[in-house]
Amino acid sequence: MPVYDLRSAGLRDLNRQLHALRPDTNETHWTVQNPDGAHAIAAGLDAPVTVEIEGNVGYYCAGMNKLANVVIHGSAGTGVAENMMSGFVHVKGDVSQSAGATSHGGMLVVDGNAGARCGISMKGIDILVKGSIGHMSAFMAQAGTLTVLGDAGEALGDSLYEARLYVRGSVKSLGADCIEKEMRDEHREQLYAKLKAAGLAGEVDPGEFRRYGSARTLYHFHVDNAGAY
């Protein structure tokens, strides 16, 4: 299985090789050494392969991912797994801001903490953060789930659409039009499925979480709501 030294061979050549992989490739497990915080590592993948990155990465690692399983043995900069369509991205360390931004599908798991705007404009992705998340997370989040085992920062879910937010710890404050909602069986089942997908089945109790979602009062612009923005 290919082992790629990014420091000596360069980003363009790595991404070119990864993009050239066909769905039936035998090269299904790649290791990237010495990432050195480079940007756009393994961005734009479109094949069911695993890419393990041994170290810290810069912006947009695994951006626009389809199908691939990307494991980052380190921390990630801004926009990890941004606009992901499908696949699985697992960050063993912390992530910076805008993790999983605008992503349509797949799953992003962060073992550490996430910075500001985690899940901003998310459109269907499942994000699970084992630590805490920063302010303005799930801003204008449209669809998908954001699960946080730790705490959430200020203005969680501001101007939220239909995404579901599950937080185990405290929430510093809720954003405009975001409210706490009843945790029914269907939500506990959904949350359990997400925990299971992240390898946490049996380790974390879905009953410890609170659910947050849209009050839907801002779905149609009305002058009486102008003060809420």
Binding site: H39, G58, T78, G79, Q97, A101, F139
Partner: peptide, 18 residues
């Protein structure tokens, strides 16, 4: 949602090119 300012824009353009 995932970049702010001209330095970030350069990185975003780099991603789009990649």
């Amino acid at each position: 949602p995932d970049w702010t300012g001209p330095d970030d824009l350069e990185i975003k353009i780099g991603e789009l090119r990649e």
